[in-house]
Amino acid sequence: MKHEQQHNPPMKYGMAIDLDKCTGCGACMVACMSENNVPFKTDESNKLDSITWIRVYKLTNGKSFPDTDICYLPRPCQHCEGHGGHSPCVSVCPATATDYSHETGIVSQIYTRCFGCRYCMAACPYHARYFNWWDPVWPDGMEKYLSPNVSPRMRGVVEKCSFCFHRYQQAKNKAYLNGERRVPEAAYQTACTQACPAGAIVFGDLNNPEHKVHQIVQPDPHNGNRSKNPRAFRLLERLGTNTKVYYLSSREWVRRAGDNYLAHETTGHVSKPHH
């Protein structure tokens, strides 16, 4: 196995989410929570303490009726690479409870090592990280639905989207047993990708030219992995977080809503950050 890994170029799992296709139905959120044993409380209307690894935001163009346009934006963990794996959260965790994998590009979270200081949450501008303020409690009988492949989290630790990492592990084992060198594209897909009825989410290896996500995004490694697709943008790209979730839209106002711009700046063209 080790031998094979050395010969495999590193992967970089990522997503392309077409916001012009997203209907805001929330199926990705439900699929994700169900897949990943995310707990729920009787009242989840306080969104500041409601765990949703992928959250669908509703954006508007700010114009009044009848010129109002809306856009739904699903936000999983962006799996920032930063500069060489220096993602905002990984670099600050004092106990190495979250890590950037150079093999898959996935930012992991080790629940049993996290001691709940929440520094990573302070560091994440996407609010992709959630704290278990409460003990997870499932109604009687409902614990039967829990996935045995994902460990439930205890009170007092941080959790977040893992790109369904357990599915990667299973696919990797299967590929190994089948004698395949690499995990096939279809063998590893996230729950949200599969649940999206509009097919708005495309998931795969951004490094692999055969993968659809690579073809859509066309990441430019010489330009900080920015997309060469004119429809594509990343959230808060200019912060240098170097995320692996790309968004697509033909609407200029949607692309502009993906980052902070000074009044005179044109969408998609910004100066380099100072760090």
């Binding site: 600050v92 965790c93 106990a95 001691f115 709940g116 929440r118």
Partner: peptide, 20 residues
């Protein structure tokens, strides 16, 4: 901290890049 009994992890699993 959310898991006070694990407070010692900051020394045991120390991430030297973290300010904390």
């Amino acid at each position: 901290i959310g898991q006070p009994l694990r407070g010692w992890f900051i020394f045991w699993h120390a991430n030297v890049h973290s300010m904390l």
